[in-house]
Write a protein that binds this DNA or RNA. Structure first.
Lengths: 150, 150
DNA sequence: AACAATGATTGCTGTTGTCAATGATTGCTG
DNA sequence: CAGCAATCATTGACAACAGCAATCATTGTT
């Protein structure tokens, strides 16, 4: 209905700024993810925690905060939600009673399977303009950009 | 202090999801921009409006909302801010009195020059891991992704 | 035994994204 | 031309979220 707008004059300033594009695309990505996860009662950040837990099997809350880049206080409420949904549990750490060791429940592992395929669909949708080779290139570049953080 | 983490096992699930990477990088990009613009009393969204106005010279508020992807109500308060700072003005549209035509003031145009160089610095910082060729590739890919929206 | 450091938690504050509702204005249509 | 739907800007409310400071229990150090 509007045609390609890469050549529209008003575009030049905003569209040639990779930082701004990342910001905008990140927003869109986030809202798509949240929409897809809504049916499970989860949001993007819950899902990220579940995915992280699936790879390490047992993480301190501090570790979650560091690795995922969330504030420790945010982790608290996110875990409250996951625990209330029966998807994750906090266990005592016999070695250091300050720590809470978070693990996936079987229900959590189960839900992760379907939620994962949902979010894969979102990523597919997001990357639709690109073919497989371009997607691989983009992913490689993004990973290099993300390396400095977590 | 930590070394490259592309190979750490816990990474695989999160780091191989381009959608999630976009989300995280978008967050980081946004906060860097906001930090850089803070000295001017602006936030990222103000700056985006100023930049858009610089290219079109006179835009209805609805046009700003559509093109930049903001809610019309958000545009109202953003313009209130810009107007209070003397950077933009709302003018009457003789053709249709429902419309407010927003234009840059001279001060706005002036500030945009220094703010632009600030934000260029942010993008440079963000893209530091990539050389010039890779940056060009990334920008091209991001533009293709962003085309469907605005 | 005293003290600094750490992990989880609570609380608060400002920003942001969304949505619904309203008032003014315009264009359309019978 | 009278009424009605659509459009634009605006206001208001609300959940989500980031960021920060303060607190409590626990651990390690000296």
């Amino acid at each position: 209905m509007m045609g390609p707008m890469s050549d529209a004059p008003w575009m030049h300033r905003l569209q040639t700024d990779a930082g701004y594009l990342l910001y905008r695309l990140g927003q869109r990505s986030g809202s798509l993810f949240n929409a897809a996860l809504e049916q499970h009662g989860l949001r993007l950040r819950h899902h990220a925690i579940l995915r992280y837990l699936a790879t390490v099997d047992g993480a301190r809350q501090r570790e979650l905060a560091d690795r995922l880049g969330y504030d420790p206080s945010a982790v608290v409420t996110l875990l409250d939600d996951l625990q209330r949904l029966g998807l994750a549990e906090r266990r005592a750490d016999p070695a250091d009673r300050r720590n809470r060791i978070v693990v996936l429940t079987e229900a959590g592992r189960e839900l992760l399977r379907t939620a994962d395929s949902d979010s894969r669909r979102v990523t597919d949708d997001l990357l639709q303009p690109l073919d497989a080779a371009d997607r691989a290139t983009l992913l490689a570049l993004l990973r290099r950009l993300a390396e400095p953080i977590s």
